[in-house]
C-alpha cells in the first residue's frame, strides 16, 4: 500500500470526524454561554447547582464519560447511537470548559460598562446582551479556537465507540497491512493538516487581539 493510499484510507473517515465535531459544537456553544452566564449571575443554591453541573462535565476523564454514557444509558432505558453519545459527551465536556472562559471574560470586564448601560436606562438583560456579552465573546475568540482544536482532537476517542472516524480507519488499515510506521505517521499527519493551520490562526489572533485591547486602554 502506498502512502497516498494510506492517507486516502484515513481521510475516508474525515466525514465522521467533522460531523461529530460539528454536532458537538452545537451542544458546546449554547451550554458554554448559558452555563457561564448563569454561573456569573446566580447566587446561593442556584450557583451551587450550576457549578456542580459544570464540574461534573469538566472533572471526569472524557474517555470514562464516553464509556460510562455509552454503556450505562441503555441500562436506564435510554437508547442513543454511538454518534449521538459521542457528540453529546464531547460537546458538553468542551462546553463546560468554555463556560469557564465566558465567566472569566465577563468577570474581567470593567464594572463601569454595566453601570453606564444601567444609567442609560437599559434593563440588566439588555446590558448583558448588547454590552457585556459582545465584549466577552470577542475577548475569548482565541480561547474558543483553542477549545475547538481540543474538540477536533477529542473526536479521535469516538473511534473506541466503533464510530468509523479517521483514527478508526487507521486501526482498520493497521489490522489489514500491519504497517504501523506509515499508518500512524499518516494519522498524525492527517490531524496535523487539519489542526495546524487552526493552531497558527489561534496564535495570531491571540497576539493581535491582545494588541487591540492594550490600545483601547490608552484613551
Amino acid at each position: 500500500m502506498s502512502f497516498f493510499e494510506i492517507m486516502r484510507g484515513i481521510y475516508s473517515g474525515f466525514g465522521v470526524t467533522m460531523n461529530v465535531t460539528i454536532l458537538a459544537l452545537v451542544y458546546a456553544i449554547p451550554f458554554a454561554v448559558v452555563a457561564g452566564v448563569l454561573q456569573h449571575f446566580s447566587t446561593g443554591t442556584w450557583r451551587w447547582v450550576v457549578t456542580a453541573t459544570i464540574e461534573f462535565w469538566r472533572s471526569s476523564p472524557i474517555l470514562v464519560l464516553l464509556y460510562a454514557f455509552y454503556y450505562s444509558l441503555p441500562a436506564f432505558g435510554i437508547y442513543l447511537s454511538a454518534f449521538s453519545v459521542g457528540a453529546l459527551v464531547l460537546g458538553l465536556n468542551a462546553g463546560a470548559y468554555g463556560s469557564q472562559s465566558i465567566r472569566a471574560a465577563l468577570q474581567a470586564l470593567d464594572r463601569g460598562q454595566c453601570e453606564a448601560g444601567l444609567a442609560l436606562g437599559l434593563s440588566r438583560f439588555t446590558v448583558l446582551r448588547l454590552i457585556e456579552l459582545p465584549q466577552a465573546i470577542v475577548a475569548m475568540i482565541p480561547t474558543f479556537i483553542n477549545q475547538t482544536i481540543q474538540l477536533i482532537k477529542g473526536t479521535s476517542l469516538v473511534s473506541l465507540l466503533t464510530l468509523s472516524d479517521m483514527t478508526f480507519r487507521a486501526g482498520e488499515l493497521f489490522a489489514l497491512t500491519y504497517d504501523p510506521v506509515r499508518i500512524y505517521s499518516g494519522l498524525l499527519l492527517a490531524y496535523l493538516i487539519i489542526c495546524y493551520p487552526v493552531t497558527i490562526l489561534g496564535r495570531y489572533l491571540e497576539k493581535t487581539l491582545a494588541k487591540g485591547r492594550g490600545a483601547s486602554y490608552e484613551f
Partner: peptide
C-alpha cells in the same frame, strides 16, 4: 510545540505504542 498541540493525545500514544516495537 505546535505539532504536539495539533495532534490528539490518543494518536500520539498509539504511535509510540505501535511504532516502537516495530
Amino acid at each position: 510545540i505546535d505539532a504536539i498541540r495539533s495532534t490528539p493525545a490518543l494518536v500520539q500514544v498509539y504511535f509510540l505504542f505501535f511504532v516502537l516495537p516495530y
